[in-house]
Amino acid sequence: MEEVNKGVSLMKEGKLEEAAEFFTKIVEENPEDPIGYINFGNLLLHMNDLERAERFYKKAIELDSNAGTAFYGIGNLYFEQSNYKDAQVNYQKAIDLGLDEGDVYFMLGMAFQHQDHQKLALPYLQRAVELVPEDEAILFQYGLSLAQTDQIEIAQEVFQKVLTLDSKHSDALYNLGVTYLFKEHVKEALEYFNKALEIEPNHTLALNGKKLVEEMNNEH
């Protein structure tokens, strides 16, 4: 296990060739242990070698059909290929096998979002937030999912929480503007569009939102 952790650390440091050497050694010394194959699969996925990554994940599943992290890895592989339906199936399998981590719930929610199944995405994104409450990327996507299912006030609370974690999150500011516009609170919408543009002057959606509000104001 110490060897595996060292390989993972090398991968995180961007020392991919050294990590590959470590994982090769682990697989050779423990050919019946799925963990080595899973980590090698993760490395290959990181290197965008999708075909070989899939072979390593499937080898891990051959050795242990209950290896939830292998199914999670295959889910990520399909997600990278924009094959969201198969990604969804594998994420769900990983959860069914007991993988109870924020990332897998988040990715399952994202797989549903990409298939335009907003209501199906919502409970998985909510679970991801429960498991990793301070992750701004997960919080933001949860806020989007709430807004897309017309739960506007809760979405506003979530976007505000994103801003407590990152006050310069221009997309959260823009989407707050959209929620206020949805409620016909035009003044507040414009304030948030302007705040987004202060941080990111070329934020196309915020520019469009501001233009829309200004046109609405001119009509009155």
Rank of each mutant, 00 (worst) to 15 (best):
residue 57 Y to V: 03
residue 57 Y to P: 09
residue 126 Q to G: 07
residue 47 M to P: 00
residue 63 L to D: 01
residue 76 N to I: 03
residue 151 Q to N: 15
residue 133 P to Q: 08
residue 2 E to P: 02
residue 55 R to W: 00
residue 124 Y to H: 15
residue 39 N to W: 09
residue 195 K to I: 00
residue 203 H to G: 02
residue 98 G to Q: 09
residue 64 D to A: 05
residue 218 N to G: 07
residue 33 D to T: 03
residue 108 L to P: 06
residue 198 E to I: 10
residue 131 L to M: 12
residue 211 K to V: 03
residue 119 K to C: 00
residue 39 N to Q: 13
residue 112 F to K: 11
residue 64 D to T: 03
residue 86 D to V: 04
residue 119 K to F: 06
residue 136 E to L: 04
residue 176 L to T: 01
residue 61 I to E: 01
residue 48 N to D: 15
residue 89 V to F: 09
residue 11 M to Y: 02
residue 24 T to Q: 13
residue 114 H to R: 13
residue 216 M to D: 00
residue 38 I to K: 05
residue 212 L to Y: 13
residue 29 E to H: 02
residue 142 Y to C: 05
residue 153 E to Q: 13
residue 107 M to P: 00
residue 37 Y to A: 05
residue 155 A to Q: 09
residue 188 E to R: 10
residue 150 D to F: 11
residue 189 A to Q: 09
residue 100 D to W: 07
residue 86 D to C: 00
residue 93 K to G: 02
residue 31 P to M: 06
residue 175 N to H: 14
residue 76 N to Q: 12
residue 58 K to S: 08
residue 29 E to V: 01
residue 2 E to N: 13
residue 50 L to H: 10
residue 62 E to N: 12
residue 76 N to P: 05
residue 95 I to A: 01
residue 83 N to F: 04
residue 163 L to S: 08
residue 130 E to H: 07
residue 107 M to C: 04
residue 119 K to P: 00
residue 17 E to P: 01
residue 7 G to F: 06
residue 63 L to V: 09
residue 193 F to I: 07
residue 208 N to C: 00
residue 218 N to A: 15
residue 15 K to M: 01
residue 119 K to E: 14
residue 14 G to F: 08
residue 68 G to F: 04
residue 217 N to R: 14
residue 157 E to D: 15
residue 122 L to F: 07
residue 135 D to P: 01
residue 96 D to H: 04
